Simulated scan of single mutants.
Amino acid sequence: MALVREQPIYTTRAHVFQIDPNTKKNWVPASKQAVTVSYFYDSTRNSYRIISVDGSKVSKEVIINSTITPNMTFTKTSQKFGQWADSRANTVFGLGFSSEQHLSKFAEKFLEVKEAAKLARDKSQEKMETSSNHSQESGRETPSSTQPSSVNGTDDEKISHSPETALLKTENDRLKTVVEQSNTNAKKWETELQTLKESNARLVDALQESNTNVETWKTQLATCKEESDQLRAKITELEAQCQEASQEKEKNAQLTARVQELEAELQDKEQELENLRKQAEIIPQLMAECETITGKLQAAETANKELSDKMGVLQTDVEDSQQKQGHMKGELKKFMDVLEGKIDELHEVRQGLSKLGLDN
């Protein structure tokens, strides 16, 4: 995180990504939502950094801590996305902006900070060269300035004012400065290392939580799969039952059609039987007429015996009556034959109806 000596010089909001360290191709989101991304200037070290802190969590996490160097380049890969590589962090950072204007402004600021870092590096090199040249000139001037006093001085004074001693002193001062700078950098690196350790611990906790969620999802998936298998078996059973019901329905329809056909046949037979009954009612009348004719014939025969004398006279009448009687007997015989046939058919119909009733 930024120290007190660092001040923000530009701030924007963007979605932060980092390149996948394994594939080096895919982007991994470093924040779940848009976060603040700022340029910071360190007046003490005369350096620039890009810093972003994810404040959506309970404990804030540094997701970008990139020091700008003159060798860095910010590249626009689309209208709203840009990236740059940080060799010190051994990663590539990506930013997704809400508009093309925000991306352009961030890129312009990156170029300005890069130029400022380059100028700061050049000034630092010039200052180091000037300091080195000044030390060398001081070392060369020391013998000449001390020459008058060293003419009559002791050997210790000559040694203390020798050029080698001045160079050693200058080198010692430079080494002290380097050691102090190293100590400062070591403290800074310790702070960053502690931050990285905390981030790593949070990542481990998140990974463990993800593994727990994965196991939960696996259990839920197995349960859903088992329920799906049960539902499929139930559907198969219901389909079989529906098929059986369809077959039973078809059989019932066939039986209903057959019953309707039999009822129609039964109605026809009943109508035919009714006709036969009507014809059977005429038979007693015919029998009565036949008996009457027979009585008349007997009476005629008796009268014939009694009127034998009238035989000759009535012979013609008798012959006529006999012809009529013969004709009437023939007609009666034919009628009786027909009646017997109808009675036989009626008997067969009754037997058929009885058999049909037993079958039903």
Rank of each mutant, 00 (worst) to 15 (best):
S199Q: 09
N200P: 00
N200W: 07
N200I: 03
A201S: 11
R202E: 08
R202G: 02
L207F: 08
L207H: 07
Q208K: 12
E209M: 07
S210H: 08
S210N: 06
N211S: 13
N211W: 03
N213R: 15
N213Q: 14
N213L: 12
N213D: 12
V214C: 05
V214F: 14
K218A: 11
K218H: 09
K218N: 09
K218L: 11
Q220L: 10
L221T: 08
L221Y: 11
L221N: 07
A222R: 09
T223H: 09
C224E: 15
K225S: 13
K225G: 04
Q230G: 10
Q230S: 15
R232M: 05
A233F: 04
A233E: 13
I235W: 02
E237D: 15
E237Q: 15
E239R: 10
A240Q: 14
Q241P: 00
Q241F: 02
C242K: 15
C242P: 00
E244S: 14
Q247G: 04
K249Y: 12
E250S: 15
E250V: 02
E250G: 05
E250T: 10
K251M: 11
N252C: 00
N252P: 00
A253H: 05
Q254H: 10
L255Y: 11
T256H: 14
T256Q: 15
R258C: 01
R258A: 08
V259A: 06
V259Q: 03
V259M: 05
E261M: 01
L262M: 05
L262R: 07
L262A: 06
E263A: 08
A264I: 01
E265C: 00
L266I: 09
D268V: 06
D268Y: 06
E270K: 11
E270N: 08
E272D: 02
L273G: 00
E274S: 14
E274G: 07
N275R: 11
N275S: 11
N275G: 05
N275F: 08
L276S: 03
L276Q: 06
R277L: 12
K278V: 01
I282L: 15
I282F: 05
L286S: 03
M287C: 00
A288E: 14
C290S: 15
E291G: 05
E291S: 13
I293P: 00
I293M: 12
K296W: 00
L297S: 03
A299G: 06
A300F: 14
E301G: 04
T302M: 07
T302H: 09
T302E: 14
A303G: 09
N304M: 08
E306S: 07
E306N: 10
L307P: 00
